[in-house]
Amino acid sequence: MDKINSIKMERVSFKSGGEDILKNINVEFEAGYIHTLIGPSGAGKSTLIKLINRLIDPTEGRVLINGIDINNFDVINLRRKIGMVFQQAHLFDGTVSDNIKYGPLLMGEKNIDVKYYLNIVGLEESFQNKNVSNLSGGEQQRISIARTLANRPEVILLDEPTSALDPTSTQLIEELILQLKNKLNLTFIWITHNMEQAKRVGDFTYLVVGGELVDCGRTGELFENPRKEITRLFIDGKLTGGKSK
């Protein structure tokens, strides 16, 4: 698989249990940026990013990487190139080190520099032997990011990684992601409910409402000068409903 330059969705729809979760999504995420997805709860944002690492497949349409249908890539390799961090960091039983080594060990890599990854996420080396049950929420989320980084991904999907964290931990994660983008030239597709957060971190922002991508653009323009009424209503907190049906 070549270096990922773009991820594109063409006429993508997703149905589950007879319900339309996503409807006719057409979008392109360019590499090297932070793309934030905003929208009401249940709008289909999490479903949308799970299509990118093939945790699910669309019922219609296709997802392309560098113009090639995603189904042409080996799914395991794809998930290593496109990592994902969930809202609730699930750490596997054991130590921090066990968790960071998880992905590489699956591929038979044995020499994993755990300290390097701890350093990247701003944690001390002494963390490597700590049991994961003794970590705070913010530390767990940083370990979960370090674990994803250990697979050396090019793109990271973030499904509301700070929604369960306190303001200090949230700020630390935001700073970390901005550093990673610049330092490692990574691409992030970041779901957030926090519009201030989207403004702070997003290069581009996408508004998903009722399973449809209703607006997108450069973050500053989208928030300061919304072209569409629905975007203005959402920003002003006046949009009611918006769940996918």
Binding site: N53, I76, R79, R80, F86, Y102, L106, T148, N151
Partner: peptide
């Protein structure tokens, strides 16, 4: 489910 999804997202096979 979250544990399984996490493992899959890290490149684990279904079996792993």
């Amino acid at each position: 489910t979250l544990e399984i999804q996490t493992a899959l997202a890290l490149g684990a096979s279904a079996r792993q």
